[in-house]
Amino acid sequence: MNHLSTLPDEELLRRALLERREPGGGRAASVLLERYQERVYVWCLRIVRDHAKALELAQETLVNAYRRLDTFEGRSGFSSWLFAIARNRCLSALRRPSPFMDEEGLEELVDPRPRPDERREARVDEETVLDLVRRHLDLVEQEALWLRCYEGLPVDEITRLLGLDASSGARGLLQRARRKLRAAWEQPAAERAGRHG
């Protein structure tokens, strides 16, 4: 096992795929996935902020990755492939906030039902929001809003990642970004289209 732990991801993956056909195999896959398991858990915990839930999501991610190892085509890096699985698991377990509505301390988890006031905005597809974000928000606002609403990161994590002033943090930034976005969205559609065109 020791010598396996010194191998790069690509070599471990190659061996893992070979070992799957052998009885008692799985050592390389085990080393490869255990190499990333803490990162997966910490990532899940950053998103859902609850140890038990994060552990459950991390376990699901690792098992899912093991089952799908032979679909890994090698065109991407293993870490980003695994991240994609973890990210999808976490996002499906989250109630993601609307890019339009202020959150009022909304950080809670897993209530997939949209609030009544979110229903109208829920119909705005991601591409439309992306277009509005591009045209109406500055770079840091863009990143903060997207991290919050589409990557599911908590506000304090966004504050840390974007290196924002801890006193107001991402909360104030997100409020401002949402205000701008609402104003842009509430413009008549023809005006929006004309300005865009």
Partner: peptide, 15 residues
């Protein structure tokens, strides 16, 4: 791209 920048930030945070 705002979406890709955010995803890249998230990915770096994972690593």
């Amino acid at each position: 791209c705002p979406r890709c920048r955010a995803r890249a930030i998230a990915f770096r945070s994972f690593l």
